[in-house]
Design a protein around this nucleic acid. Structure first.
Lengths: 107, 107
DNA sequence: CAGGATCCCTTCCGATACTG
DNA sequence: CAGTATCGGAAGGGATCCTG
């Protein structure tokens, strides 16, 4: 339970999920959508998401081979609570910045 | 923005927030509510939460001194989206466990 | 009671290089 | 194109001891 939460809250996981929520993406497409993720981290993130049953990995035997990632039904069900959180961050990040400013200058 | 998300998704942060959402707690009370958090991590977590303006730290000059932590208004506003996420985890963690089982045995 | 300081081990993660 | 393998620095985090 605790590890599921920390998985979801992971730095890259959220971004990957939000990217795949728009539409299925290929590996390199996700990388372009999230510019500063390394191949290593993207690969790792996608693997754990696949392992957790949130993302489906589909290989096409083309030449060169392409791989498509899409959300499973379970993955889609995470979209709502996740965007609720994202909206909160969007509403609040300026307050948080201000609070940090205060805290840092007054100390 | 990204760092705010990873802050919220932090292993201990969520648990501390959920604890303080119930009621204001003193340091040692939080520690009892979250048994396997170390003093070091609790202290650190509370500090960043205070810095971010989500938690208010109130010192009472008693003997021995006691310190109370409570959510600010901003902290309270995080409660809803956070519990939405927690509810999702509660609904889904069995599916996730099952998916991991499948993934690990079939590989 | 509520922490700060230090030590030290583990995990994360970016950079680079290589493969089918 | 879609990855894996390896290395090395940086960060996370527990254990222990110390303080007002």
């Amino acid at each position: 339970m605790r590890d599921v939460l920390s998985r979801v809250g992971d730095k890259w996981t959220m971004l990957v999920l939000l990217t795949l929520a728009e539409a299925p993406h290929r590996f390199s497409q996700v990388q372009r959508a999230i510019p500063d993720i390394s191949k290593r981290m993207l690969s790792q993130t996608l693997q754990t998401l696949e392992r957790d049953g949130l993302v489906l990995r589909q290989v096409f035997a083309t030449k060169p081979p392409s791989v498509e990632y899409r959300l499973t039904e379970l993955g889609c069900s995470l979209f709502e609570p996740l965007t609720a959180l994202v909206r909160w961050v969007e509403r609040s990040h300026s307050s948080i910045r201000a609070a940090r400013q205060d805290y840092d200058t007054s100390s």
